[in-house]
């Protein structure tokens, strides 16, 4: 059973409410319909209800699979706004939020912020920037986290790591040149993400071209400082370094290079790159030479799960990412 099959099974055990603000898009509606029909999620279509119902009918979908939320209906909107502004630490006040909610993306996120939905899934019509901005404005960032970032899950044929062929890697997509504080945030968020999604006990390695002082320089100083911050902020997590990649994931190399106690060295299941140059190249190497399947990017750092899919994504990929985000949302509730 592949990792994605396992995640699909997990989703079915506890289907989450997923809000779709771009449901008029054909691929998005199909993904919402099929994942809803098969019991993985509870799809909520947010937009112009009459238009969405007409499109669903035209596309031959059983409308009873969907819950429709009409953004023009004032009573429900007022209820969401009242609940939102009553929450502490929200950025927008009543009038500004009401205006933003004319956009289904903001409407969906406001629903999510007040618990009317568990996840907002978008990105096929909106840009990544649109989704990140709405997420930061409406959902907000987790306390203590200084940047939005992402991780991916690589399934690498022939790799026998501490989680079999799987390895979580980040950030390979969002935060380009993190400073030490941001790098610490990426590591902390990554640990939370893999725990929510896969139930793993995270063992997170911060990698660079040095293992415990074997190299020197400002590029390494940043990683060391990030490690210090991460350990100080979240002593409950197993985050360690600085390691080279082999010392992080190969027990024999760790035994030679890491001459102190470490719960991570040689058995890391989460690897954090020092910046996006490394992250992007590493993903391409894993894919090209390792023939890996890579799932994600999964956004992290928000108060609750925000998802952005690629604008060119096929329906199968959208469905996979919808289900992944739903399982993360269910996992985050268990904390």
């Amino acid at each position: 059973m592949s990792v994605l099959d396992k995640i699909y099974e997990k989703a079915k055990e506890n289907p989450q409410k997923v809000a779709f603000p771009e449901a008029s898009n054909e691929k998005m509606m199909q993904a919402a319909y099929e994942t809803g029909r098969d019991g993985y999620i509870i799809p909520i279509l947010v937009g112009d209800e009459a238009e969405l119902r007409a499109l669903a009918k035209e596309r031959g979908y059983d409308e009873s699979v969907f819950t429709f939320v009409d953004i023009h209906e004032e009573e429900y909107k007022s209820k969401v706004i009242a609940a939102y502004v009553a929450k502490p630490d929200t950025k927008l006040k009543e009038k500004a939020l009401g205006r933003r909610m004319e956009n289904p993306l903001y409407y969906s996120m406001a629903m999510q912020a007040v618990g009317e939905a568990d996840v907002t899934f978008a990105g096929i019509d909106n840009t990544t920037g649109d989704v990140l901005l709405a997420g930061q404005m409406i959902i907000g960032m987790k306390p203590g986290i200084s940047t939005i970032s992402s991780i991916g899950l690589a399934d690498i044929p022939g790799y026998e790591g501490s989680e079999g062929s799987l390895l979580a890697i980040g950030d390979s997509a969002v935060c380009t040149n993190p400073n030490a504080e941001q790098l610490a945030s990426i590591a902390i968020s990554a640990c939370d993400t893999v725990h929510e999604l896969l139930g793993w006990e995270p063992r997170c390695a911060m990698v660079c071209y040095s293992t415990l002082g074997s190299g020197q320089g400002e590029l390494i100083d940043k990683v060391k400082e990030a490690l210090r911050i991460a350990n100080e902020q979240r002593p409950d997590l197993n985050i360690d370094g600085e390691f080279q990649l082999d010392a992080a994931i190969v027990p024999a190399v760790a035994a030679k290079k890491v001459k102190r106690e470490s719960k991570v060295a040689g058995k890391a299941n989460v690897v954090i790159w020092p910046d996006l140059n490394v992250g992007n190249v590493a993903v391409k190497l894993i894919q090209q030479f390792g023939h890996a399947d890579a799932y994600g990017p999964m956004l992290q750092g928000f108060n609750s799960v925000v998802c952005d899919c690629s604008r060119g994504a096929p329906v199968s990929e959208i469905k996979g990412n919808v289900v992944i985000s739903a399982v993360r949302a269910a996992g985050s509730k268990k904390k």
Binding site: K93, K95, A96, R99, L133, Q136
Partner: peptide, 24 residues
């Protein structure tokens, strides 16, 4: 500041002055 502070600022401009300035 970080980008999140600019998001906060844009939100406050909307709240207090009733104007929407695009983040970019």
């Amino acid at each position: 500041g970080a980008s999140i502070q600019m998001v906060g600022l844009v939100s406050e401009l909307e709240n207090e002055l009733d104007v929407m300035v695009a983040l970019q």
